[in-house]
Each structure stands twice: as structure tokens, then as C-alpha cells.
């Protein structure tokens, strides 16, 4: 069970209250019409699956219902940091 800090509620809650919404920092191409099929396919379907640090999008589903980002180690499950949408992570893989 992960013990997750919600940056909006400003306190730790149990994992039950949260949902993971996949990889963070995926930006939609500004002009989808101008994308090649490969670029659009990359944006739509291809996700990272690293062993180690991963930036994920989470939502405090049973609490404040706000999204936030989390940097997590997929191997040890250790949560390195949480940060709000629009902020950049301070812990990144080399």
C-alpha cells in the first residue's frame, strides 16, 4: 500500500483514494493535422515503461478529485516527489 501525499489537500492519504492515470507530461501536438501517422501514433499509443524513475499522473479520486504528478521508482515503488500540474519535476533520471 502506497502512502501518497496529495499536494492539494496537503496531507498523506492511503493509496485507495487515488488512481494512477498513466505517464505524465504528454503534450498533445499543437497541430494534429500536420502530424505524420508515425508522430500521431507515438503521441496516442506509445508510452514509456522504464525500470527506475517514472513520472506519472495521479488523481485524488476519492478526495479533492484533482490531478497531480508523481515521480516514482518503478523498481522499489519509492515515491521521490509529488508536484502539481504545470510544474516540472526536480528529480529526474540521468
Amino acid at each position: 500500500m502506497l502512502h501518497i501525499y496529495c499536494p492539494h489537500c496537503a496531507e498523506y492519504r492511503e493509496e485507495d483514494e487515488f488512481h494512477c492515470a498513466g505517464q505524465a507530461h504528454i503534450s498533445r501536438p499543437l497541430d494534429p493535422e500536420a502530424c505524420s501517422d508515425e508522430e500521431w501514433g507515438e503521441y496516442l499509443f506509445f508510452r514509456k515503461n522504464p525500470r527506475g524513475l517514472h513520472h506519472e499522473l495521479w488523481v485524488h479520486a476519492a478526495g479533492c478529485r484533482k490531478f497531480f504528478n508523481m515521480t516514482r521508482d518503478t523498481q522499489s515503488y519509492e515515491i521521490k516527489e509529488v508536484y502539481k500540474i504545470g510544474e516540472q519535476p526536480s528529480v529526474v533520471a540521468e
Partner: peptide, 12 residues
């Protein structure tokens, strides 16, 4: 100490 009078939480 962590849930004083007046505090509100939305939870399960």
C-alpha cells in the same frame, strides 16, 4: 492531533 474539530475530509 491530526483531525481537529472543524476539519473536513472527503474520503472512502
Amino acid at each position: 492531533n491530526s483531525f481537529p474539530v472543524g476539519k473536513v475530509v472527503s474520503t472512502l
